[in-house]
């Protein structure tokens, strides 16, 4: 009994038999997944593999066809209270376009019931002071991702769901973000990150490999090996010399 409760606490996300259908097309078919507390799970998939769908379902913003998804002990279909303790960074730019950086912080803080101190904390964390007055659409990719992540962390979440957080951005921002996420992880935070560049495997504890609407769980090494193997076989098939 006691052990069971402990298990509950360790398990942050559990997904059972999840099916998602978008415009009559099956995107996720019978996906099962468990994420433990303090874990950093990567979701790897090509474009259109259903990565974003899975992450949005776990963040509780997309409806889904069938299955059961629990986040922080809440059934996402019935209980929305887990949103107090989660943060989401979407792949598509989703900050308020017609506002400045500071105004975005203020509005999102209101949406997340976060305080002024929280804003100051994340602004310092992500070194965003100089950009507060800038209109959000003028920001470069790296800075924009920092703002987005800062917004996601306004409510000091226990779980962060991040979609392509460090793709195609400048190196400084990338290292800053990685650094902050490592700190978050080391302080007991749980991470689920969607990515499509195999290099980012090194940051993950485990990798969920999305292919053909199915998810398989691999270690970081296994994922890298699988990628290399695939890469080699494709090159061979087309007669390209493999460097």
């Amino acid at each position: 009994m006691e052990q069971n409760e402990e298990m509950e606490e360790i398990r942050v996300i559990s997904v059972n038999n999840l099916v998602q259908v978008i415009s009559r097309q099956v995107v996720l078919d019978n996906v099962n997944l468990e994420v433990a507390k303090n874990e950093c799970l990567g979701i790897y998939g090509n474009r259109g593999s259903g990565k974003t769908s899975l992450l949005h379902i776990m963040a509780g913003i997309d409806r889904f066809k069938s299955g059961r998804v629990e986040v922080l002990g809440c059934n996402v279909r019935k209980d929305q209270s887990f949103k107090k303790h989660t943060g989401l960074l979407t792949q598509k730019r989703s900050l308020f376009r017609d506002l400045r950086t500071a105004e975005n912080f203020e509005l999102i803080a209101a949406l997340k019931n976060a305080s002024r101190q929280d804003i100051e904390r994340v602004v310092d964390d992500f070194e965003l002071k100089p950009y507060l007055k800038e209109p959000i659409i003028m920001l470069e990719g790296g800075i924009y991702q920092r703002v987005s992540l800062a917004c996601a962390m306004l409510n000091s979440p226990q779980l962060l769901i991040l979609d392509e957080v460090i793709k195609d951005i400048d190196l400084y921002s990338r290292h800053l973000i990685v650094n902050r996420l490592k700190t978050f992880n080391s302080q007991g935070g749980t991470l689920v990150c969607g990515f499509s560049n195999i290099e980012f495997c090194e940051y993950m504890d485990r990798v969920g490999w999305l292919e053909n609407r199915q998810l398989s769980i691999l270690t970081a090494e296994e994922a890298r090996d699988k990628y290399n193997q695939l890469d080699r076989s494709m090159a061979d098939r087309l007669g390209n010399t493999y460097a």
Binding site: H56, A59, G60, I61, K83, K84, T86, G87, L88, T90, K92, R93, S94, L95, F96, R97, I108, L111, K112, N113, C151, N155
Partner: peptide, 13 residues
């Protein structure tokens, strides 16, 4: 259309 609706959906309000 601007994708910012997800900010509302993932809010605690």
């Amino acid at each position: 259309e601007r994708h910012s609706w997800s900010q509302y959906l993932s809010s605690v309000l």
